[in-house]
């Protein structure tokens, strides 16, 4: 049962890892490959994302879009 997911613009990401440490579900990790600027980028490595928005709040590059199950979703803080 998928409760949420994220889309990370891998070419905007600078591999700072702040989203990775902010994610309560440890759904994110740095990629093995590098992006257009030569950074390893953050990507989803699990499917336990709850769409809690933590990662997007701390992302300095505004690279993360967050999706969540429609039912009774909390208003975006």
């Amino acid at each position: 049962m998928i409760r949420g997911t994220v889309i990370i613009d891998k070419d905007l990401c600078k591999g700072c890892e702040l989203c990775i440490v902010a994610c309560p579900q440890t759904s994110l990790a740095l990629s093995k490959s590098i992006n257009v600027s030569g950074y390893r980028f953050a990507e989803l490595v699990e499917t336990n994302c709850t769409g809690c928005v933590n990662c997007a709040l701390v992302c300095p590059e505004v690279a993360i879009k967050v999706y969540r199950k429609a039912k009774g979703t909390k208003k975006v803080v």
Partner: peptide, 21 residues
Amino acid sequence: LELVYSKPETLKDVPFHYCPG
């Protein structure tokens, strides 16, 4: 799923030049 978070329009579509993090 419902999009609950994305870039505001009040930010231009310009990648930040700031250092990582």
